[in-house]
Nucleic acid binder design. Structure first.
Lengths: 191, 191
DNA sequence: CGACGGATTGATATAGATCAAACCTGGTGG
DNA sequence: CCACCAGGTTTGATCTATATCAATCCGTCG
């Protein structure tokens, strides 16, 4: 299954809500956010997608969310119809897609617990923990997205995210090395 | 594709988190909630499932959420492995499953906006609107679940749900006919 | 009738939002 | 090389929506 490659600048839109959902996307490099907006501008970032992640699954003809580049990024796109047809023929591929979709269901379930029931501190720690996990539990982790992005992902305000991070630093849980880089303490982010 | 039927009492557990996820479920009658718990008892209800709904999709061997009967209910269960195998053979079935899964993704995305960005009033109105929609926009809608269930679905407390409903009544948006029955006013629930 | 499991209502506390300045930092141009 | 600027971040002061704690109420069922 091959697709065509595309590049996007920071903050460029890969696709918008309501647009025809003709393609499925796979991140090659960089980071992509998928989001939904309310009329008054409130934004919820559903997920950040990293290299290797596939996104853009939709049940209907049009996108129900938009996708934007968090950093400059490259993606490959595949015609959805072609992909679905191929999945019908190739059991291997079909199963891979199924796994990707159900895994995403699991992540969203988990994130709903965070949004519905966790405190700001827990949210930020969970965010950092997942970032650390993606980076193979490195001691120093990169945060490629802005505080605003983090806030809109965690259902908080930018100020609360910022304050919570400095509090985590004060309690020794992390140490901030510039705003986009965090050293996670020996204590780790255990809950 | 046939499965076996099962019945559950109100509040009975269909399956628990961590249990082997050997079956996929379809609601025949009654209502089921899927939920996740935090160690300290906080609960997030991901979705309520109504007759016709299919649930229990998991990427791995074990369930990542639990399911409980909101009302007495009947479900049919199908071996997951058998279902997946059949989907590999029958394109019709495969596509139906795919649609069910992506539709669920869409619902969860929408719900994350609610949990992350909406006010209590908006949450309750959205909840009532979706209940009304499921009941073909009947003028009087049934609420089969408790206030606690609603609260845990909307990321609120039981008290806030209750208060918000009486406020909606005071402003004339709805009228409560007993705690489990609501008449939606002519104004409807337009945002 | 009495009791028990919701549901509602009331009083108060508080986490996080909002409004408003500073504060960096990296890039640009003089 | 430095001053300046713009975007993003942090910090501060205050406000408020919602949580929390605590009765009371209501309806159903024995």
């Amino acid at each position: 299954m091959m697709g065509s490659a595309m590049s996007f600048e920071r903050n460029e839109e890969l696709f918008a809500e309501e647009e025809p959902a003709d393609y499925v996307y796979k991140v090659v490099s960089g980071v992509v956010r998928t989001c939904k907006f309310l009329e008054d501008g409130r934004r919820q970032i559903g997920e950040f997608h990293f290299p290797g992640d596939v996104f853009g699954f939709e049940p209907c003809a049009n996108h129900t969310f938009s996708a934007e580049a968090v950093t400059p990024c490259r993606v490959v796109i595949v015609k959805r119809a072609a992909l679905m047809a191929a999945a019908g023929r190739d059991a291997e591929l079909g199963s891979a897609l199924w796994i990707a979709a159900t895994r995403e269901l699991g992540r969203l379930h988990e994130h709903m617990v965070l949004l519905g029931r966790k405190s700001a501190r827990e949210r930020v720690m969970a965010f950092l923990a997942s970032a650390a996990e993606r980076q193979c539990d490195a001691a120093v982790i990169d945060i490629p997205m802005s505080r605003q992005d983090i806030a809109d992902h965690l259902g908080l305000t930018i100020e609360t995210v910022s304050r919570t991070m400095t509090q985590l630093q004060e309690t020794g849980a992390i140490s901030l090395e510039g705003s986009r880089r965090v050293r996670v303490g020996p204590v780790r982010l255990a809950a």
